[in-house]
Nucleic acid binder design. Structure first.
Lengths: 143, 143
DNA sequence: TATTGTTATACTCTATAACTATA
DNA sequence: TATAGTTATAGAGTATAACAATA
Protein backbone atom coordinates (compact mmCIF):
# COMPACT_ATOMS: atom_id res chain seq x y z
CA UNK A 1 0.00 0.00 0.00
CA UNK A 2 1.09 3.57 0.55
CA UNK A 3 4.46 3.66 2.18
CA UNK A 4 6.14 7.01 2.60
CA UNK A 5 9.02 6.87 0.15
CA UNK A 6 11.88 9.35 -0.06
CA UNK A 7 11.69 11.46 -3.23
CA UNK A 8 14.75 9.54 -4.40
CA UNK A 9 13.10 6.15 -4.02
CA UNK A 10 9.91 7.59 -5.47
CA UNK A 11 11.82 8.73 -8.58
CA UNK A 12 13.08 5.21 -9.12
CA UNK A 13 9.67 3.65 -8.46
CA UNK A 14 7.89 6.00 -10.87
CA UNK A 15 10.55 5.67 -13.57
CA UNK A 16 10.51 1.87 -13.48
CA UNK A 17 6.70 1.67 -13.40
CA UNK A 18 6.33 4.09 -16.33
CA UNK A 19 9.03 2.42 -18.45
CA UNK A 20 7.63 -1.04 -17.90
CA UNK A 21 4.01 -0.17 -18.62
CA UNK A 22 5.08 1.84 -21.65
CA UNK A 23 6.88 -1.18 -23.07
CA UNK A 24 3.92 -3.40 -22.31
CA UNK A 25 1.47 -1.03 -24.03
CA UNK A 26 3.71 -0.88 -27.08
CA UNK A 27 3.76 -4.69 -27.20
CA UNK A 28 -0.04 -4.59 -27.62
CA UNK A 29 0.40 -2.81 -30.94
CA UNK A 30 -0.87 -4.83 -33.91
CA UNK A 31 1.59 -5.64 -36.71
CA UNK A 32 -0.29 -3.72 -39.36
CA UNK A 33 -0.37 -0.51 -37.32
CA UNK A 34 1.79 2.55 -37.94
CA UNK A 35 5.08 3.02 -36.10
CA UNK A 36 5.24 5.03 -32.86
CA UNK A 37 6.39 8.23 -34.52
CA UNK A 38 3.90 7.87 -37.36
CA UNK A 39 1.07 7.34 -34.89
CA UNK A 40 2.20 10.22 -32.71
CA UNK A 41 2.66 12.63 -35.63
CA UNK A 42 -0.73 11.75 -37.07
CA UNK A 43 -2.34 12.16 -33.62
CA UNK A 44 -0.73 15.62 -33.36
CA UNK A 45 -2.14 16.63 -36.75
CA UNK A 46 -5.61 15.37 -35.81
CA UNK A 47 -5.46 17.18 -32.47
CA UNK A 48 -4.12 20.48 -33.85
CA UNK A 49 -5.81 20.33 -37.25
CA UNK A 50 -2.52 20.82 -39.14
CA UNK A 51 1.22 21.35 -38.72
CA UNK A 52 4.45 22.08 -40.61
CA UNK A 53 7.37 19.65 -40.87
CA UNK A 54 9.29 21.86 -38.44
CA UNK A 55 6.51 21.93 -35.85
CA UNK A 56 6.13 18.17 -36.09
CA UNK A 57 9.86 17.43 -35.78
CA UNK A 58 10.11 19.74 -32.75
CA UNK A 59 7.13 18.14 -31.06
CA UNK A 60 8.26 14.56 -31.66
CA UNK A 61 11.89 15.42 -30.83
CA UNK A 62 13.26 14.11 -34.11
CA UNK A 63 15.24 15.94 -36.85
CA UNK A 64 13.46 17.44 -39.88
CA UNK A 65 14.75 14.82 -42.39
CA UNK A 66 13.39 12.05 -40.17
CA UNK A 67 10.00 13.73 -39.89
CA UNK A 68 10.04 14.31 -43.65
CA UNK A 69 10.36 10.57 -44.17
CA UNK A 70 7.62 9.91 -41.63
CA UNK A 71 5.28 12.28 -43.46
CA UNK A 72 6.19 10.68 -46.80
CA UNK A 73 5.01 7.32 -45.45
CA UNK A 74 1.78 8.79 -44.06
CA UNK A 75 1.15 10.62 -47.34
CA UNK A 76 1.72 7.52 -49.49
CA UNK A 77 -0.67 5.61 -47.23
CA UNK A 78 -3.28 8.33 -47.71
CA UNK A 79 -3.50 9.49 -44.10
CA UNK A 80 -2.20 13.07 -44.64
CA UNK A 81 -1.93 15.66 -47.42
CA UNK A 82 0.78 18.30 -48.04
CA UNK A 83 -0.57 21.77 -48.77
CA UNK A 84 1.29 25.05 -49.45
CA UNK A 85 1.46 27.72 -46.72
CA UNK A 86 -0.33 30.88 -47.88
CA UNK A 87 2.02 33.28 -46.05
CA UNK A 88 5.43 31.60 -46.30
CA UNK A 89 6.40 29.74 -49.47
CA UNK A 90 9.13 27.79 -47.67
CA UNK A 91 6.71 26.08 -45.38
CA UNK A 92 4.59 23.00 -46.06
CA UNK A 93 1.38 22.55 -44.10
CA UNK A 94 0.45 18.95 -43.45
CA UNK A 95 -3.21 18.10 -42.80
CA UNK A 96 -4.90 14.79 -41.95
CA UNK A 97 -7.30 13.22 -44.46
CA UNK A 98 -10.65 11.65 -43.56
CA UNK A 99 -8.86 8.31 -43.62
CA UNK A 100 -6.29 9.70 -41.17
CA UNK A 101 -8.96 10.91 -38.78
CA UNK A 102 -10.62 7.50 -38.82
CA UNK A 103 -7.34 5.66 -38.21
CA UNK A 104 -6.51 7.71 -35.12
CA UNK A 105 -9.88 6.92 -33.57
CA UNK A 106 -9.52 3.22 -34.36
CA UNK A 107 -5.92 2.98 -33.08
CA UNK A 108 -6.81 4.63 -29.79
CA UNK A 109 -9.70 2.27 -29.28
CA UNK A 110 -7.53 -0.77 -29.87
CA UNK A 111 -4.62 0.31 -27.70
CA UNK A 112 -6.95 1.14 -24.83
CA UNK A 113 -8.60 -2.28 -24.98
CA UNK A 114 -5.79 -4.16 -23.22
CA UNK A 115 -5.46 -1.56 -20.48
CA UNK A 116 -9.22 -1.15 -20.11
CA UNK A 117 -9.63 -4.86 -19.41
CA UNK A 118 -7.10 -4.72 -16.58
CA UNK A 119 -8.38 -1.50 -15.07
CA UNK A 120 -11.76 -3.15 -14.54
CA UNK A 121 -10.12 -5.62 -12.14
CA UNK A 122 -9.04 -2.80 -9.80
CA UNK A 123 -11.01 -1.45 -6.84
CA UNK A 124 -12.74 1.95 -7.19
CA UNK A 125 -10.14 3.38 -4.78
CA UNK A 126 -7.27 2.14 -6.95
CA UNK A 127 -8.90 3.64 -10.04
CA UNK A 128 -9.30 6.97 -8.26
CA UNK A 129 -5.59 6.87 -7.33
CA UNK A 130 -4.65 6.23 -10.97
CA UNK A 131 -6.89 9.05 -12.18
CA UNK A 132 -5.16 11.51 -9.85
CA UNK A 133 -1.73 10.09 -10.70
CA UNK A 134 -2.36 10.38 -14.45
CA UNK A 135 -3.05 14.06 -14.11
CA UNK A 136 0.07 14.59 -11.96
CA UNK A 137 2.24 12.60 -14.42
CA UNK A 138 1.03 14.62 -17.40
CA UNK A 139 1.92 17.86 -15.66
CA UNK A 140 5.37 16.49 -14.88
CA UNK A 141 5.92 15.41 -18.48
CA UNK A 142 4.91 18.78 -19.87
CA UNK A 143 6.92 20.83 -17.37
CA UNK B 1 -8.28 16.73 -8.44
CA UNK B 2 -9.90 13.30 -8.34
CA UNK B 3 -12.78 13.21 -10.76
CA UNK B 4 -14.57 9.89 -11.17
CA UNK B 5 -13.66 8.79 -14.65
CA UNK B 6 -15.20 5.89 -16.52
CA UNK B 7 -12.73 3.02 -16.97
CA UNK B 8 -12.68 3.91 -20.65
CA UNK B 9 -11.64 7.50 -20.04
CA UNK B 10 -9.21 6.30 -17.38
CA UNK B 11 -7.56 3.96 -19.90
CA UNK B 12 -6.98 6.85 -22.24
CA UNK B 13 -5.73 9.14 -19.45
CA UNK B 14 -3.28 6.55 -18.12
CA UNK B 15 -2.05 5.57 -21.58
CA UNK B 16 -1.36 9.16 -22.62
CA UNK B 17 0.29 10.07 -19.30
CA UNK B 18 2.54 7.01 -19.37
CA UNK B 19 3.53 7.43 -23.03
CA UNK B 20 4.32 11.09 -22.63
CA UNK B 21 6.40 10.75 -19.45
CA UNK B 22 8.20 7.76 -20.94
CA UNK B 23 9.23 9.80 -23.98
CA UNK B 24 10.29 12.67 -21.76
CA UNK B 25 12.44 10.45 -19.53
CA UNK B 26 14.11 8.93 -22.58
CA UNK B 27 14.94 12.41 -23.86
CA UNK B 28 16.91 12.99 -20.65
CA UNK B 29 19.33 10.22 -21.62
CA UNK B 30 22.90 11.42 -22.23
CA UNK B 31 24.47 10.73 -25.63
CA UNK B 32 27.28 8.55 -24.28
CA UNK B 33 24.88 6.28 -22.40
CA UNK B 34 23.97 2.76 -23.44
CA UNK B 35 20.86 2.14 -25.53
CA UNK B 36 17.54 1.31 -23.87
CA UNK B 37 17.87 -2.43 -24.37
CA UNK B 38 21.52 -2.43 -23.30
CA UNK B 39 20.65 -0.52 -20.14
CA UNK B 40 17.68 -2.72 -19.40
CA UNK B 41 19.56 -5.98 -20.01
CA UNK B 42 22.46 -4.85 -17.82
CA UNK B 43 20.04 -3.79 -15.09
CA UNK B 44 18.41 -7.23 -15.24
CA UNK B 45 21.79 -8.93 -14.83
CA UNK B 46 22.71 -6.69 -11.90
CA UNK B 47 19.35 -7.32 -10.25
CA UNK B 48 19.31 -11.09 -10.80
CA UNK B 49 23.06 -11.67 -10.53
CA UNK B 50 23.23 -13.46 -13.91
CA UNK B 51 21.14 -14.65 -16.85
CA UNK B 52 21.27 -16.68 -20.08
CA UNK B 53 20.76 -15.19 -23.54
CA UNK B 54 17.36 -16.87 -23.65
CA UNK B 55 16.24 -15.47 -20.29
CA UNK B 56 17.37 -12.01 -21.31
CA UNK B 57 15.65 -12.07 -24.72
CA UNK B 58 12.41 -13.29 -23.12
CA UNK B 59 12.49 -10.60 -20.45
CA UNK B 60 13.27 -7.76 -22.87
CA UNK B 61 10.81 -9.08 -25.46
CA UNK B 62 13.38 -9.27 -28.27
CA UNK B 63 14.58 -12.27 -30.31
CA UNK B 64 17.73 -14.20 -29.30
CA UNK B 65 19.91 -12.88 -32.18
CA UNK B 66 19.09 -9.31 -31.12
CA UNK B 67 19.96 -10.02 -27.50
CA UNK B 68 23.12 -11.76 -28.65
CA UNK B 69 24.24 -8.54 -30.35
CA UNK B 70 23.29 -6.50 -27.31
CA UNK B 71 25.42 -8.75 -25.10
CA UNK B 72 28.31 -8.56 -27.61
CA UNK B 73 28.28 -4.77 -27.24
CA UNK B 74 28.14 -4.94 -23.44
CA UNK B 75 30.94 -7.53 -23.40
CA UNK B 76 33.20 -5.50 -25.70
CA UNK B 77 32.62 -2.48 -23.47
CA UNK B 78 33.63 -4.52 -20.43
CA UNK B 79 30.29 -4.40 -18.60
CA UNK B 80 29.48 -8.16 -18.71
CA UNK B 81 31.31 -11.51 -19.05
CA UNK B 82 30.14 -14.73 -20.75
CA UNK B 83 30.69 -17.87 -18.65
CA UNK B 84 29.83 -21.52 -19.43
CA UNK B 85 26.85 -23.15 -17.71
CA UNK B 86 27.99 -26.01 -15.47
CA UNK B 87 24.92 -28.19 -16.08
CA UNK B 88 24.02 -27.49 -19.72
CA UNK B 89 26.77 -27.04 -22.29
CA UNK B 90 24.44 -25.28 -24.73
CA UNK B 91 23.75 -22.40 -22.36
CA UNK B 92 25.85 -19.31 -21.81
CA UNK B 93 25.59 -17.54 -18.46
CA UNK B 94 26.13 -13.79 -18.64
CA UNK B 95 27.29 -11.98 -15.50
CA UNK B 96 27.94 -8.26 -14.86
CA UNK B 97 31.49 -7.09 -14.15
CA UNK B 98 32.47 -4.60 -11.43
CA UNK B 99 32.39 -1.94 -14.15
CA UNK B 100 28.87 -3.04 -15.08
CA UNK B 101 27.65 -2.79 -11.48
CA UNK B 102 29.09 0.71 -11.19
CA UNK B 103 27.52 1.84 -14.47
CA UNK B 104 24.02 0.75 -13.47
CA UNK B 105 24.26 2.72 -10.23
CA UNK B 106 25.53 5.81 -12.06
CA UNK B 107 22.93 5.59 -14.85
CA UNK B 108 20.08 5.28 -12.38
CA UNK B 109 21.31 8.26 -10.44
CA UNK B 110 21.50 10.40 -13.59
CA UNK B 111 18.15 9.38 -15.08
CA UNK B 112 16.41 9.92 -11.77
CA UNK B 113 17.87 13.41 -11.40
CA UNK B 114 15.44 15.12 -13.79
CA UNK B 115 12.40 13.39 -12.29
CA UNK B 116 13.64 13.84 -8.72
CA UNK B 117 13.90 17.60 -9.18
CA UNK B 118 10.28 17.79 -10.31
CA UNK B 119 8.92 15.44 -7.67
CA UNK B 120 10.25 17.78 -4.98
CA UNK B 121 7.89 20.49 -6.23
CA UNK B 122 4.85 18.29 -5.47
CA UNK B 123 2.88 18.28 -2.22
CA UNK B 124 3.33 15.31 0.16
CA UNK B 125 -0.20 14.19 -0.78
CA UNK B 126 0.66 14.19 -4.48
CA UNK B 127 3.80 12.18 -3.80
CA UNK B 128 1.82 9.65 -1.78
CA UNK B 129 -0.61 9.32 -4.68
CA UNK B 130 2.27 8.66 -7.09
CA UNK B 131 3.80 6.09 -4.75
CA UNK B 132 0.53 4.16 -4.65
CA UNK B 133 0.03 4.58 -8.40
CA UNK B 134 3.54 3.31 -9.19
CA UNK B 135 2.85 0.09 -7.36
CA UNK B 136 -0.50 -0.33 -9.13
CA UNK B 137 1.05 0.39 -12.54
CA UNK B 138 3.81 -2.16 -12.02
CA UNK B 139 1.29 -4.83 -11.17
CA UNK B 140 -0.66 -3.96 -14.32
CA UNK B 141 2.47 -4.12 -16.47
CA UNK B 142 3.49 -7.52 -15.12
CA UNK B 143 0.00 -9.03 -15.36
C1' DT C 1 22.43 35.58 -44.86
C1' DA C 2 19.05 32.68 -42.36
C1' DT C 3 15.28 29.46 -42.56
C1' DT C 4 12.32 25.56 -44.40
C1' DG C 5 12.09 21.58 -46.54
C1' DT C 6 14.28 17.90 -49.19
C1' DT C 7 17.75 14.37 -50.92
C1' DA C 8 21.81 11.33 -50.24
C1' DT C 9 24.12 8.48 -47.27
C1' DA C 10 25.33 6.00 -43.04
C1' DC C 11 24.48 4.06 -38.46
C1' DT C 12 21.71 1.54 -34.88
C1' DC C 13 18.42 -1.78 -33.49
C1' DT C 14 15.56 -5.46 -34.63
C1' DA C 15 13.97 -9.49 -37.30
C1' DT C 16 14.10 -13.96 -40.12
C1' DA C 17 16.72 -17.82 -41.90
C1' DA C 18 20.39 -20.84 -41.68
C1' DC C 19 24.19 -23.02 -39.07
C1' DT C 20 26.76 -25.26 -34.91
C1' DA C 21 26.90 -27.63 -30.72
C1' DT C 22 24.70 -29.94 -27.04
C1' DA C 23 20.60 -32.57 -24.72
C1' DT D 1 14.63 -34.53 -32.77
C1' DA D 2 14.61 -30.40 -30.01
C1' DT D 3 16.98 -26.58 -27.81
C1' DA D 4 20.61 -22.65 -26.97
C1' DG D 5 23.37 -19.78 -29.02
C1' DT D 6 25.49 -17.71 -33.05
C1' DT D 7 26.25 -15.82 -37.86
C1' DA D 8 24.51 -13.74 -42.20
C1' DT D 9 21.53 -10.71 -44.17
C1' DA D 10 17.67 -7.46 -44.57
C1' DG D 11 14.30 -3.89 -42.99
C1' DA D 12 12.76 0.14 -40.22
C1' DG D 13 13.92 4.45 -38.05
C1' DT D 14 16.99 8.11 -37.11
C1' DA D 15 21.04 11.19 -37.86
C1' DT D 16 24.43 14.28 -40.35
C1' DA D 17 25.80 16.69 -44.52
C1' DA D 18 24.70 18.83 -48.64
C1' DC D 19 21.30 21.10 -51.66
C1' DA D 20 17.12 23.98 -53.35
C1' DA D 21 13.84 27.46 -52.66
C1' DT D 22 12.13 31.31 -50.15
C1' DA D 23 12.36 35.26 -46.52
Amino acid sequence: MAQRLSTHDLSTAVRIAVARLSRRLRAEKADDELSDTQTSALAFLVREGSGTIGQLSDHERVKPPSMNRTINCLEEAGYVRRTPDADDGRKVVVVPTEQGLALVAETRRRRDAWLHKRLRTLTPEQRATLAEAASILRELADS
